[in-house]
Amino acid sequence: MASLTAWHNEVQRTLNGALPTQFGPADTLPTEGGSVAQCCVLWPTTGTEQSRNGSPVHQRTDSVLAVFVGATVLDALAAVGKGRKALEGARLTASTRNGGRVREGGFTGAQPIPEPGTDPVRVSLSIQFDAISKEPR
């Protein structure tokens, strides 16, 4: 099995094709004309591993929290759309040979909110993405 870091790097490369993406914490973000550009800040998680006694299959869930950012609510929502399009259903193979399809794992219908004390102003919305992969032991 490849490293967990490899999976998170694959998520970053996949998203980077749609919008600038970096790992958090991110004190500086890309700007356009004095405003923050649409981008994504990734916060990796450890994910989970499971195998049942006597089961020939090992299951792994890799997760990442993606914070989509823009200068306005509409920009943040546009960044979310670009990220969803890039990740949803993608098969990432860095952590396991067969890989797992990425799905949205944690979105509660929240609205993008302004981040306090940022200059330039930035608005963000967080979504968790997961990939579940199974492989023989």
Rank of each mutant, 00 (worst) to 15 (best):
S3R: 07
S3M: 00
T5A: 15
H8P: 05
Q12S: 10
R13L: 15
N16E: 10
G17A: 15
G17L: 13
A18R: 00
A18V: 04
P20I: 03
G24V: 05
P25D: 11
T28W: 07
L29V: 08
E32Q: 15
G33H: 06
V36D: 00
A37S: 15
Q38L: 11
Q38H: 11
Q38M: 15
C39Q: 06
V41Q: 04
Q50I: 12
S51W: 06
R60W: 05
R60Y: 07
T61D: 04
T61F: 02
L65Q: 11
A66M: 09
V69Q: 00
A76K: 01
A78C: 08
A79E: 00
V80P: 02
G81S: 11
G83E: 04
L87R: 04
G89H: 04
A90W: 00
R91F: 05
T93P: 00
T96P: 07
R97D: 12
N98C: 06
T108C: 03
G109V: 09
I113K: 11
I113D: 11
P114F: 13
P114V: 14
G117L: 05
G117F: 08
T118S: 02
V121H: 02
L125W: 02
S126H: 06
I127W: 02
F129L: 07
D130T: 11
A131H: 01
A131T: 07
I132C: 11
K134Y: 12
R137K: 10
